[in-house]
């Protein structure tokens, strides 16, 4: 899952090295438009629906937090 999500992030913002960042939001790798795009891609890829209340910066600051969000949203 990490590799798949990393590829989604690289596809959206190819100019950034996501593996070198400890916080995608604070480092400016993902803005709110990017987050919307990430959610759309995740929902499509994993056939899940991410709750609107889960769309907070904390859930998109690292690969771990995004993986956790996908799992909570129904991906086994």
């Amino acid at each position: 899952m990490r590799e798949t999500i990393l590829n989604i992030l690289k596809d959206i913002r190819p100019e950034f090295d996501f593996e070198s960042s400890n916080n995608f939001i604070e480092d400016g790798f993902l803005d709110s438009f990017d987050v919307v795009t990430v959610i759309s891609e995740l929902e499509l890829k994993y056939n899940i629906v991410i709750d609107g209340l889960a769309v907070i910066p904390e859930n998109f600051e690292s690969l771990d937090s995004i993986c956790e969000l996908v799992k909570k949203s129904g991906e086994k």
């Binding site: 803005d31 709110s32 438009f33 987050v35 609107g52 209340l53 769309v55 907070i56 910066p57």
Partner: peptide, 12 residues
């Protein structure tokens, strides 16, 4: 606009 902040406000 704080896009994430406004989005979260609406959903909450």
């Amino acid at each position: 606009m704080d896009g994430s902040g406004v989005f979260n406000f609406v959903q909450k």
